[in-house]
Amino acid sequence: MLYVTQTALLLGCIYAIVSLALFISFRILNIADLTTDGCFVLGMAVSVSASVHGHPVLGLFLAMLAGCAAGAVTALLQTRCGVPAILAGIVTNTGLYTMNLMAMGWSSNINILKQETVYTLFRSTGIGGSWYNILLSFVIMALFMVIIRLFLATRLGLSVRATGDNPDMVAASSIDPRKTILIGLVIANSLTALAGALIGQMQKTADINGGTGIVVIGLACLIIGETVIGRGSLTRNIIACFIGNFVYRMIYAVILQTRIIPVDCLKLMTALIVALAIALPTIRENAALYRRIREEGHRNA
């Protein structure tokens, strides 16, 4: 059980960064950013490549920079070229496949053999004992959560939030929505790439297909978190990113151990959770309407 919890904590901390990215794009900007899958692999590829060449720490920064670039492409496609938001993400995502292969030296997977990673470097300091990788991941996650929370309260952060909340009002406040969308997506994708970078170094491998479904899992965790601790203040929403990922990874680990559900079915389960959670308000509304029609139609007849 301790092992299961440790794994869930470790993965929960890292993937919470993906949910944090989706919180910015999906919840704040109101844009479903499908760049996420490719961007996650991009971060992984860049950071693992850098580690192979002996620069694990630099690798994290390079990965974030690459993520920024990916986010900027998606944002510019939609704000300057009139490509619909969802399509812009898909287009970037497709292009990223080639970019990711390139980042891995045109191979579909690369491994860190004897070279250092940020995790092995941190272990050698002796801090955290056997919890070293959880501690490091948690610190990085918490750091970015705090930065994002602070950013969202600045003038620029307010402008980004208003862009998703009321686009009419944003232009009327002399804010250029094209810029705020760019800023939001750049930040979100740099976070996604960071998560990919950490996973790559933790697992010591990068795989061209390592990001499939990340966007759905990230959303599922965001929604699970919001369901568990509620959607209230920004702080609460940001903490929900971690809670949701921890709960999801606990469930995942338990399923892996007990094999209640075949592991192969997990992606379907995840997809169902997301579909249901997002559809629930509409389903509830429709159900209420049908109930009314049934009752009142009866009375009128």
Binding site: T154, R155, S159, R161, A162, D165, V170, S173, S174
Partner: peptide, 26 residues
């Protein structure tokens, strides 16, 4: 903006004043 507070909305309106306020000020 409905999901933002009164003070946050007003702070955005002040951005029209331009130059005086820094982008990263709270």
């Amino acid at each position: 903006a409905p999901h933002m507070t009164i003070e946050e909305n007003l702070a955005l309106a002040y951005r029209r004043a331009g130059g005086k306020t820094s982008l990263f000020s709270r």
